[in-house]
């Protein structure tokens, strides 16, 4: 077997999710090659070559891949990937965008968002917003798979010594063009890979009150998230959403503030190592999954938390 992993990166650094996907590839077994497609990605290719278990790094370095447009990327991946038994990438928004296109171009099914590998053709994935877990067997000759990064412990970022090979494949489908992007500027860690996450729900009442969470986050080196209810209410942007329709996180510590614990939200964070819930409603379902629950008014508890952390850290 031979597995092609499509690296996730932002043209400046390799995303950790790529190491989780390589771990999933190792669980399948076989030679693992990594494709780095983007613009000016030499350093990223070098980083990928150092990852544990990687055999070869293929580099497609061209402006047509610079913004990860699915139309161009999918043609590249379908052409490079057709010689492999498996094509894997992270189930981030880039992977979710281009990978089904790859599957369609190869006329094969895609298995989305796997959390476990049972065998070379059988995978485990959540369905119904995580209310059910399906074991799925793929019958196509090429398995196209997206991987939920939190389902797999990452391989080591250092220690490997894969060869690096430049590809001269330029695919410009001519269907789409990049116009602009608006990246949320933040000094805090990335939500998807942060070790500690503090999230607010509808109980926060408005967007300004999220500043309280940000202050606690800055003490802990944490990322700030939100429930879908808080996003739907317009308190914060959607890229902060934790849940089945947002980000899936599994940090060491997850602090849920003013979040009732809808199943939609639990699907996005219930694999966290330690869960803390702060909510004034002692019947809130979030307490059923919390390791430590505090029944309190968040507008008193969160400032106190900031004070206590000052003393403790």
């Amino acid at each position: 077997m031979s597995i092609l992993v499509i690296a996730e990166h932002d043209n400046s650094s390799l995303k950790q999710a790529t190491l989780n996907v390589v771990a999933a590839a190792k669980a399948i077994g076989g030679d693992i090659d990594v494709l780095v497609a983007g613009e000016n990605v030499g350093a990223i290719a070098e980083a990928a070559a150092k990852a544990e278990g990687v055999n070869k790094v293929l580099v497609a370095d061209n402006a047509v891949y610079g913004h990860f447009l699915a139309e161009n990327l999918s043609e590249l991946v379908a052409e490079v990937g057709k010689g492999y038994s498996h094509i894997l990438t992270s189930a981030g928004t880039t992977g979710k965008d281009f990978m089904p296109r790859v599957a369609a171009l190869l006329d094969v099914a895609q298995v989305s968002d796997i959390i476990r590998v049972e065998s070379e053709d059988t995978f485990v994935r959540p369905i119904y917003a995580g209310n059910a877990i399906a074991t799925v067997k793929a019958s196509d000759s090429i398995k196209v798979v997206t991987v939920r990064p939190t389902g797999f412990d990452p391989v080591a970022a250092e220690g490997g010594s894969a060869s690096v090979e430049q590809l001269d494949v330029v695919k410009d489908a001519g269907l789409s063009a990049f116009v602009s992007e608006e990246k949320a500027e933040s000094d805090r860690p990335d939500l998807a890979s942060a070790g500690i996450v503090i999230s607010g729900g509808r109980g926060m009442q408005n967007g300004d009150n999220f500043k309280m969470l940000e202050q606690v986050a800055d003490q802990l080196g944490a990322a700030v998230g939100a429930s879908r209810a808080a996003v739907d209410a317009g308190f914060v942007p959607n890229d902060m959403q934790v849940g089945q329709t947002g980000k899936i996180v599994a940090p060491q510590l997850y602090i849920a503030v003013g979040i009732s614990g809808a199943i939609q939200h639990l699907a996005g964070m219930s694999d966290s190592k330690v869960i803390v819930a702060i909510n004034k409603d002692e019947e809130a379902p979030i307490f059923q999954v919390a390791d430590y629950g505090l029944v309190a008014d968040l507008f008193e508890a969160v400032p106190q938390l900031e004070e206590e952390l000052k003393k403790a850290l």
């Binding site: 094969v108 099914a109 298995v111 059988t122 959540p126 369905i127 995580g130 209310n131 059910a132 877990i133 399906a134 074991t135 799925v136 067997k137 793929a138 019958s139 196509d140 510590l253 219930s270 330690v274 869960i275 803390v276 002692e282 307490f287 059923q288 999954v289 919390a290 390791d291 430590y292 629950g293 505090l294 029944v295 309190a296 508890a301 106190q304 938390l305 206590e308 952390l309 003393k311 403790a312």
Partner: peptide, 30 residues
């Protein structure tokens, strides 16, 4: 193209304890 071999309920997470106040919470976490 895909066959579903089985569908299971997700593993349930056990509820933990309630803490009395923020000081106890921080103590437990630390």
């Amino acid at each position: 193209r895909l066959s579903t071999l089985k569908v299971e309920a997700p593993a349930a997470r056990q509820a933990g304890i309630k803490v009395a106040d923020v000081a106890e919470l921080v103590d437990k976490l630390k």
